[in-house]
């Protein structure tokens, strides 16, 4: 049985990264604190995974200020969106293969 594990994106191996990406697929922009609340995670954990996604150029970072508070927004890049879709396709194929075998 040949399973296309290699088609799965390494960047999405971590669950939190995949979750961040799914949020950014349906929302133009999402800010750090809302992400943190939604995914129920810690500052450090979220920040490090966002960094990783940024390094892959899957997301863009927009920094601004609301009043005096810094407000960081994230947006998915075209590259990120394509990668996410490929990853989902690969997951789907895995299911199909397991069904036929």
């Amino acid at each position: 049985m040949k399973v296309p594990f290699e088609k799965l994106d390494k960047a999405f191996e971590n669950r939190l990264r995949l979750q961040v990406m799914s949020v950014l697929m349906v929302n133009d922009r999402y800010d750090f604190n809302s992400l943190k609340e939604l995914l129920d995670t810690t500052d450090g954990n979220l920040a490090s995974h966002l960094k990783a996604l940024e390094k892959e150029e899957y997301i863009m970072v927009h920094k601004s200020f609301v009043g005096r508070k810094p407000n960081t927004n994230y947006q998915a890049t075209e590259k990120g969106k394509t990668a996410f879709k490929h990853h989902l396709d690969a997951l789907e194929q895995l299911i199909k293969q397991q069904k036929t075998t």
Binding site: R15, L18, Q19, S22, V23, L38, L91, E92, L94, I95
Partner: peptide
């Protein structure tokens, strides 16, 4: 990865997409 695991993953993605935008 087991099939159930993948299904859970896909379900959680769908849930998150809905929960984050609506």
């Amino acid at each position: 990865m087991e099939e159930k695991e993948i299904r859970d993953e896909l379900a959680s993605i769908r849930n998150l997409m809905e929960r984050s935008s609506k």
